[in-house]
Structures are given as structure tokens and as C-alpha cells.
Design a protein around this nucleic acid. Structure first.
Lengths: 202, 202
DNA sequence: CGCGGGTTTGATGATGCTCAAGCCCGGTGG
DNA sequence: CCACCGGGCTTGAGCATCATCAAACCCGCG
């Protein structure tokens, strides 16, 4: 990776952290030493089903997805990650067991990679980093609970409308069939839902 | 509440905490001072939609549920809580905004109630309490992600089988229609799923 | 006993899936 | 510059799963 791009990656991380807490230069010095910049080409994997997940990733640029493959070979997207998001299989990382998920890139992407040990160092370095992480975890937990609630109570159309409202940036960047997968419907159904909406809007 | 029952409640909490970390007598002294024992009669509420959630609850005895009500008036169960589980609307608690959920008791239940401030004290009192809490949050997050994965990839029958396997204690204690609600199907459908399973098993 | 909540069963229907074909559009090579 | 290819989206017809509505059944409790 070019030095220029590396610098930009760390700039992005710094801005992200700074949003959540003050950060002195020497603190950021340490932080930088713990993360490794990595570029991931479109359709390349950073985690495959059956592997143990050893890293967390901060997305500097691009789009990644976390998904499972069921016994019929169908993909089911659990999470997207765009700029400024984190992605990883926390379950595999904590348990040290094989992951049931895959993570790959939907576009050429730049990420900052951090392994488990470095991450421990990172959050134990300062309480404010730990707070930042825990707050992020809570937000993720709340978003997942919201998604469960929606699965329990919404039709395909309602789930799509909710998503447009809550994650417009994802809608605008990700191919429709992936949106469908995330919503738990087929691409055909999503197409029909959209047709219906545009009809009723005009 | 009778003193005897109160003591038993704190015993349960102590055993729970001890499972996760050592605990000295004087530490537990403090912990006890932060929680309030409460009994909840069957069908009584500790949180209603529209209220701000001000407490977390540790279940000593009984069964509670967290659920939403959709615009058709249907209930959708997000979470059960049995002995040794925690229940609360974390989202409302963190944001300070009105909850979209209800929490009530499915049986006469004993819980230990703790308000937001006391909880802050609790986890800031010792790093091991904070660790315990964060680990619990991660586990909850992982369980929610698993549930999302299941919604995306499983049929009604598969979800039910998964639940039998993962939460047999809930299956054995909770009326069928509530299991159905948790799985996102109707009581009638669950009844038929069970019929099918018993047919194919014999 | 008989009442009542919960579960089961049956008949019918809606939502979303499957499979197959057509369409749109951007990229590539002649 | 245009023809053609291919991926992704759309459309259509038939179908499966699960929902709905209504009735019967079961069983514990007053």
C-alpha cells in the first residue's frame, strides 16, 4: 500500500476516535502501531466459514458484508460495513471457535486490521477507548434487537421502507439483490415491492 | 416482601456474581445496597410502551417477557427472562427516550431492581463488575445476531427445533402461544409444526 | 359440573418463493 | 461506432408456506 493511502487510513481512524473522545498525539501514536492497513479487492475474502476469526476491521473506504450460507447454498447477509463502521465475527473471536460466517468486499476497500491481542491492548490502554468500544457494542446490540423486532412484526414492504429510512447510504451503494438478502426476501420480491411503491407514489 | 425472601433474592444475586468473579463480603455489602427486591404478580407490568425505562432487573424467580405490540395489536416477544437472567430495555435506558416495548411477568416473579445511577455505581465500583457486564452484553449481542441469522435462513420448523435445543428451559415453562410469538409464527402454525414432528418421530 | 383459556383441527386465502423468460444497460471487441 | 455479451433487474405463472377465521376439543379450577 502506498504511504499516502496509509496516512489517509490512519487519518480516518483518528477522526473516528476523536468523535468519541479526546485524543493526544502520543495516544494516537500507540493506536497507530496496533492497526495494520490492508486493501481488499472486490469479491476477496477476509473471513471464510470454518476459519477462526482473528481480526477486527475498521472500514476506511469501501463496502464489506458479513453473511452466512445455508444448506441450500443461499447467502444471508447479517451485516454491511461502510466507511467508519467496524466489522468482525465477534462470536468466533470471543469463543475462539470456527466461524459460521463469511466476510468479503463488495467493492475494492481499504481497512485497518487489528488482531485480538492488539485490540485488548487498545481498549486497556485508556478507559476512554474501552468506553468507546462498549458504547459501540451496545449500539450494535440495540440495532440487532431492532432488526429482530422488525422481522417479527413487519411485511417485506415495511422492512424495505424502514431500511430506506434508517440506512439510505447502504441502499444507495449496494446492489438490490444484496439488500433483498439482508431483508430476508428474494430479489424478485424486492423488485415487486419497489414496483408497488413507485406505482402508489405517483 | 418478607425478610426471608429478601435474603434469598440477594443470595441468588451473590451466587450469580460469584460465578463470574470473586467477591468479598464487603463488596457484596455495597452491591446489596444498590438493588431493591421487588415481587411482580403474574400479568403485571414493570415497563409499558411509551414510558422511559429506568431500571434493570435481575430475575431471582419466575418468568418475564419483553415484547412489542404492532399496529394490528399483535404481540411480538423479543426476549424471555428466567432465573439468573437480566431484563430491561437497554435502548430506552441509554437514550432516555420512550420505550417501544413492554415488560410483564408470565408467573409471579421475584426480581432485584436497579436504577440507572446505581447501576453506574455498580459497574464503576470494580473493574470485574464492569467486565462481567460487558461480557454479558457481548453474549446478548451474539445471541441476537444468531437469532437474526435464523430468521434469515430457517423455516418455522427449523426455528422451533433450534429453540428446543438451545432454550429447553423456556420451552418447558412458557405457554406455546408465547413460544410461537417469539419464533415469529402463529400459535396455529406452531401446533401444526409440533404435530408434524411427533408424527415423523414415531 | 360447567366455565374458560389454551391448544388443535379444518378450510380457505395471502404473502412471498420458485423457475423461467425477457429486458435493460454498461463494457468489450470487432 | 456499433454489435454483442453478460449480469442484474423485472415480469409472469404456478406453487408452498404460513396466516386467518371459525369451530371443536381438552383440561384444570371454581
Amino acid at each position: 500500500m502506498k504511504q499516502d493511502k496509509i496516512n489517509k487510513s490512519f487519518d480516518a481512524l483518528r477522526i473516528y476516535i476523536q468523535k468519541h473522545s479526546d485524543l493526544k498525539d502520543e495516544e494516537f501514536e500507540l493506536v497507530s502501531s496496533l492497526f495494520t492497513p490492508v486493501t481488499i479487492k472486490r469479491n476477496h475474502f477476509i473471513l471464510r466459514e470454518g476459519e477462526i476469526c482473528r481480526y477486527g476491521y475498521f472500514v476506511v473506504k469501501g463496502t464489506l458484508r458479513l453473511y452466512s450460507i445455508d444448506k441450500k447454498g443461499e447467502e444471508h447477509i447479517i451485516q454491511f460495513a461502510l466507511e467508519d463502521w467496524w466489522i468482525s465475527d465477534v462470536s468466533s473471536m470471543i469463543s475462539g471457535k470456527a466461524s459460521i460466517y463469511n466476510i468479503d468486499a463488495l467493492e475494492d476497500s481499504d481497512v485497518l486490521q487489528i488482531d485480538k491481542n492488539s485490540f485488548e491492548k487498545f481498549i486497556s490502554f485508556s478507559p476512554k477507548f474501552e468506553k468507546m468500544f462498549n458504547l459501540g457494542s451496545q449500539k450494535s446490540r440495540i440495532a440487532l434487537q431492532e432488526r429482530v423486532t422488525n422481522f417479527l412484526s413487519m411485511t417485506a414492504e415495511e422492512k424495505y421502507l424502514f431500511m430506506i429510512n434508517k440506512y439510505p447510504d447502504i441502499i444507495n451503494r449496494v446492489p438490490q439483490r444484496h439488500i433483498a438478502s439482508f431483508l430476508g426476501i428474494t430479489p424478485e420480491s424486492l423488485s415487486r415491492v419497489r414496483k408497488n411503491l413507485s406505482k402508489n407514489r405517483s
